[in-house]
Design a protein around this nucleic acid. Structure first.
Lengths: 239, 239
DNA sequence: CAGTGGTCTAGACCACGCC
DNA sequence: GCGTGGTCTAGACCACTGA
């Protein structure tokens, strides 16, 4: 493989090759990559250069390394992806893991707002999932998730929908979520939200709009979630 | 300098030495550090090891490097610290910079909630600043900021309070904020908040409690901010 | 034990900023 | 031209894993 045609640093070219292979599913989640020396030989660079590219992918959590064992493609396990992107918890608490129940799944066309949230100019056919998530057995989040059928064909026919959808995305559709973008609003709970969250009408709730980004940079999911704000907060560390 | 007494990797020991010097103000913001080779000589390690430690500090934004010039201690300029930690903006917008006006400054003892927010077991004497921040000339955020006087002696006697306090903290008090922890709530605007944000009473607003962390790991500031949610959102990217 | 990643070194050359 | 950081290499040794 020739790497010398353009003027990016070698390690960046190696990085790009690795990302491309990950995107294309050349190595599957939880599989090991070849060793640093093997990759270095194949690509015609030194082991240190491969290491630098791999380290960046580890920092971005696309790969994991274990000394003595090897370098592995990250899996989105239930717990890791919940911990990583789930921000709601009791005030001061460290972490929370929600239980999720699906209220409905159907196909429909996206509205204009939703299309825009998905980064599209035109309406597209989507799967709409409505879910209720509980934290410590308290109804916490009432959520509508949209997935374009072009990206997730026949997602609505899945027999089992897991607590964290990202696991399913990765295993069945080759989609690895590497980033989410949230916008938070404070709104009044409407009758439906209040009912599901067990609130008085006209209680303020947190509303999060979230776009989820695949490893290849596309928005592949858009959701709108209402979280009751009596018992829960959206916690965020900025560095 | 001997680095061989404990069992941490060399680069980590170098990192710790550098952090300690930064905490103690051995090098001031915007000053250059010695070159990699000079540091390597002084500490008795190779240049590559120093580089690894410095790279980590660059990733944490405590240092900045410029090829051909040197390595510099980050300054919290007005703009950079506003961009870095200011999360409120119009939906879909990329960035916003607020204008800030100070409504009041006084000394008092912290309440129990505030002491806890500051990570303290007992009440302490604090400066309380109340500020109103506008975005695009719209009153957006009504905010109460608390600083312990033990950390910021005579802060209430400052003649000029800048738009971003972090600049002042760094220049006058040797405090460098490296992390903030936010908890977001949705609450009803009370009469005072509604008045300042130009809202009808009983409008839902976003309330953010923020603890700000110094380079040495201490919480040095705690604030509570009410942001109107008609025009603005709290935007957050998670990776 | 062999194979993996983790650390550390020494030295080469390049790209940039400045005098 | 000189000094800085940026990249790349080659090789040594250590620490962990599993057969």
């Amino acid at each position: 493989m020739s790497l010398s045609t353009n003027f990016q640093p070698l390690y960046k070219q190696v990085y790009d090759v690795l990302v491309e292979r990950l995107v294309k599913g050349y190595w599957k989640p939880s599989e090991p990559l070849p060793s640093e020396f093997a990759l270095a030989d194949e690509l015609g660079v030194s082991q240190g250069t491969v290491r630098k590219a791999i380290n960046q992918l580890v920092a971005e959590q696309l790969l994991r390394r274990r000394q003595g064992k090897g370098t592995f493609v990250s899996e989105h396990t239930q717990e890791s992806s919940l911990f990583r992107f789930f921000r709601y918890r009791q005030p001061g608490a460290n972490n929370a893991i929600p239980e999720t129940s699906i209220l409905s799944v159907k196909r429909r066309m996206s509205t204009q707002v939703e299309s825009q949230g998905l980064g599209l100019k035109k309406a597209t056919e989507v799967v709409e999932m409505i879910r209720l998530r509980k934290i410590d057995n308290i109804p916490a989040i009432f959520e509508t998730v949209l997935q374009p059928l072009t990206i997730f064909p026949d997602l609505d026919k899945e027999a089992e929908l897991p607590n964290s959808l990202y696991t399913l995305y990765q295993e069945k559709y080759g989609i690895s979520i590497v980033e989410v973008r949230d916008e938070l609003h404070a709104v009044m709970a409407d009758a439906e939200v209040a009912k599901h969250l067990n609130l008085e009408p006209n209680t303020p709730v947190l509303m999060t709009e979230r776009a989820s980004i695949n490893i290849d940079g596309r928005i592949v999911e858009w959701s709108q979630a209402y979280c009751q704000s009596q018992d829960f907060v959206y916690a965020n560390k900025l560095k």
